[in-house]
Design a binder for these strands. Structure first.
Lengths: 208, 208
DNA sequence: ACAATAACCAAGCAATCGTTTGCTTAGTTA
DNA sequence: TAACTAAGCAAACGATTGCTTGGTTATTGT
């Protein structure tokens, strides 16, 4: 009777709780979201949440984890069909990242909106999860054909900062994740752009 | 006896309260900072704060306002001695912005760390203040000699996003605001860099 | 049919929240 | 010295917070 895994009952509302929490965490932030808010959104009573999650912070960690997994999968899928060109690969990753961040999934948004230092007890966990994800961009930037004097680390952090700031100003309809990814990469291609300038003007248009 | 302005007593602790609040808002965020935290940090009792500020939100607005003013002044001063070159001017502005953000002044950090949507009642005020400041970068980016197809608005938002993300990863000693500004601008100079490549390799070193 | 348990409700706990109130003290002005 | 006020203390207000506890329902395997 090791019985750790709970047998799946028909209606497992765990996911419902996670969905509602993700939406609320995006809308009001973690600290400003009360367990009663979540309970109300799921049609339960506050205490009932604690059957599924040990604490409010555990709930955040679960949402955060799900967010990291989804955005990771999105990027990985994009990279799997991106071809060999380093710049195209980076742009594809950015497009997937932005699509997750600006699209319907609240989970990814929680990951970049939640400041780990706001949740001291879970800080290390969250930072670790995020770093694990961002390692993808480390690899992508290291693979770029860049002059030696370019600080790839700064380039990566620049891109990540720029992308994670988009939820503040993005307006659906005026921009698209694909369009932004193209402009972002275009802006940092730098010297490369001189050589092979308009080579992929057509590549950009068959997406988004 | 219109007497709206309070006569200055010797020890006006308003600034002390603002300083302590700014530090705490940076460390723990606005929502997670209690009025008791602020009171303890200033050596007062919680209620005494309300002699100086009508509400906790008003206190935030005051800190935010001070932050916007300081970072604006920093950028304006930098621009006043930056010369005519549009790229140099932009880089100087970025350097000043980063210096404020990563330096000793907590006020500037509050401005970029506080998500206005976390404070619904003061949201419009904060957004307005921030936009007024960021207008400087709109002008700077519009002045850049760029190919027509470059979206200056996205370039600006990219830079701002990248800069405002630096507090997350910046390590004093490993980087400097001036160094980062140089790298940031270098990364987005793009096609320009081909033409006048190493012209200002010496310009960068006499600062920071 | 029966025991087991997943899933939830109902109620309330102690702690903390932002804020208010009434009063005191120190300093200024007349 | 008397009137006034800036500044803050002491104490508590009602509301909200995350969470616990004990009981209830409904589904499940046997």
């Amino acid at each position: 009777m090791t019985g750790l895994a709970p047998k799946a009952r028909i209606n497992n509302r765990r996911e419902l709780i996670l969905d509602a929490s993700a939406a609320l965490f995006v809308e009001k932030g973690f600290v400003s979201t009360s367990t009663r808010d979540i309970a109300r959104a799921t049609g339960m009573l506050p205490g009932s949440l604690y059957y599924h999650f040990a604490s409010k912070e555990d709930l955040l960690v679960a949402v955060f984890q799900e967010g990291v997994q989804r955005i990771s999968e999105g990027v990985d899928v994009a990279l799997a069909t991106a071809g060999p060109d380093p710049w195209v690969r980076l742009q594809s990753a950015c497009e997937a990242h932005l699509a997750m961040l600006l699209g319907a999934s609240n989970y990814a948004h929680v990951v970049i909106r939640t400041l780990p230092s706001d949740v001291p007890d879970a800080e290390k966990t969250l930072v670790g999860l995020r770093r694990e994800y961002e390692a993808r961009f480390t690899a992508l930037c290291d693979a770029l054909p860049l002059p030696l004097q370019v600080d790839r680390s700064v380039l990566r952090l620049m891109l990540i900062g720029a992308m994670n700031h988009t939820p503040v100003w993005f307006r659906k309809g005026r921009d698209t994740p694909a369009g932004l990814a193209r402009k972002f990469i275009g802006n940092v291609r730098g010297a490369q752009a001189c050589a092979d300038a308009s080579v992929e003007a057509n590549f950009e248009e068959d997406r988004g």
